[in-house]
């Protein structure tokens, strides 16, 4: 249980916001922590049925929402993109 800063760019935002997550958080939890602070502040609400996913910035494919920060070897200040699937 270690805190780690992660830079998150949520679909629609102009840039990244740095949040602190727990290294045992799943992507679902990381996405929740990021979106609850930025959706409705700088980006509009996603449709209720939207499924949000996260991708390490620069990677080809998104991470499964069950993946954990520690399991994916996130580096300190890792940058991830959070966007609507599909």
């Amino acid at each position: 249980m270690v805190d780690i800063p992660v830079a998150c760019n949520i679909q629609g935002d102009y840039g990244f916001k740095v949040i602190v997550v727990d290294d045992e958080d799943t992507m679902t939890e990381v996405i929740r922590k990021a979106t609850e602070q930025i959706v409705g502040v700088l980006v509009k609400q996603f449709p209720p049925d939207a499924k949000l996913i996260a991708k390490i910035h620069g990677a080809d494919t998104p991470l499964p929402n069950t993946a954990t920060v520690k399991g994916e070897n996130f580096r300190q200040m890792e940058a991830i993109d959070i966007y609507q699937e599909g």
Binding site: A7, C8, G15, F16, K17, V18, I19, A34, Q37, I38, G40, V41, L42, M77, A79
Partner: peptide, 9 residues
């Protein structure tokens, strides 16, 4: 709500 809580990169 016009002020984001987390800082920018």
């Amino acid at each position: 709500k016009t002020v984001p809580a987390p800082p920018p990169l």
